[in-house]
């Protein structure tokens, strides 16, 4: 098996683990972590293919994903902490006031 296939499979495995975490876990923070794992799996794909295609264009995406992830985490964690102060839980199923 050549390296690119190995890397793509690895990244698929990491993405799946992240997806499984989002589906199974109910703790908002852990779900958030799983989303980060998924983003990283995609970054690995971009970098592996950028090496394979010998072009840096893919790595620009990785750069952007990092910027987005940083902003997203700052805001997302702020929101989670705000919710926690309002209602002391981190379980996503408990925060269902909007369901009416």
């Amino acid at each position: 098996m050549d390296a690119i296939r190995y890397l793509l499979i690895l990244s698929a495995v990491l993405f799946s683990i992240g997806a499984a975490g989002v589906l199974i876990r109910r703790n908002a923070l852990v779900i958030f972590m799983c989303i980060e794992i998924m983003l990283n799996a995609v970054n690995l794909t971009f970098i592996a293919l950028s090496r394979q295609l010998q072009s840096l264009d893919g790595q620009i995406f990785v750069f952007m994903v990092m910027a987005v992830a940083a902003a997203e985490v700052a805001i997302g964690l702020g929101i989670i902490v705000s919710i926690f102060r309002h209602k002391p839980t981190t379980d996503v199923d408990d925060v269902s006031l909007l369901k009416g």
Partner: peptide, 27 residues
Amino acid sequence: YAGAIVVLFLFALMLIGGRRPAEQGRL
């Protein structure tokens, strides 16, 4: 990621009571 994002996660965990185990963990 390793230097800033994980630290932010840990900060949030400590702020909302880091000692308690994540009881309501999973389906």
